[in-house]
Amino acid sequence: MNIFRLLGDLSHILAIIILLLKIWKTRSCAGISGKSQILFATVYTMRYLDLVTTYISAYNTFMKVIFIATSYATVFLIYVKCKATYDHNHDTFRIEFLILPTLVLALLINHEFTIMEVLWTFSIYLESVAILPQLFLVSKTGEAESITSHYLFALGSYRGLYLLNWLYRFYAEDHYDLIAIIAGLVQTVLYCDFFYLYITKVLKGKKLQLPA
C-alpha cells in the first residue's frame, strides 16, 4: 500500500458515497445513468469473485464487500426506489456495445485462460469504459448538477491516482500489470474533457454546462 493507492481508494469510496447520498437525500436520480451503475455493479461482481478464493488483507476484503454492496444499493435506488425520477429518455447508451467487445477482448488478451482470470480481465476492460453511458447522458442533456460533477471528478481521480500508484510500484517494487495499466490509462483519458470543464467551470461556482 502506498499513498497514491490509498488516496485512489478513498476517492473511489468518496465518489460512491457522494452518489448514494445525492440520490438518498433528494430522493431523485435525475441526471444519473442507471446503465453506468449497472456496468459498475457488473465490474465489481466479476472482479471480486476472488473474495471466496483468496485472502489478501482485511482492508482488501472490507473494501471489496463495500464496493459490491454499494454498487447494488445504487442500482436498487435508481431502478426501484427512485424509479420515477430516472432519466430513461436520456439514458439511451447501448451497453451491449461495451459489454460484448470488452468480453471478447478479455477472452483474447489475458494473463491466463482460466474462468477467474478472464472474468477479472473482463472487469478491468469493462470498468475502463463503464462511465461512457453517464458521460453520454451529460452530453445529451447538455449539463450536470454540481453534485453529479463532484461525483464524476472523484470517480475520475480514482483511476488517475492509480496510475501514479502503478508508476510508483514499477519503480519501487518492480511490479507492473500491463492489462491494468493500459485499461487504467484509457479510463483516465475518457475523463480528461470532463476534468477540464470541472476545473474551469464547476470549481468557479458555475454549473457544468456544455457549449451549445
Binding site: R5, W120, N165
Partner: peptide, 10 residues
C-alpha cells in the same frame, strides 16, 4: 519483475 498470481489491488 514479479508476476503476481493474485490481484492485490481493488
Amino acid at each position: 519483475v514479479e508476476i503476481a498470481d493474485t490481484h492485490d489491488e481493488l
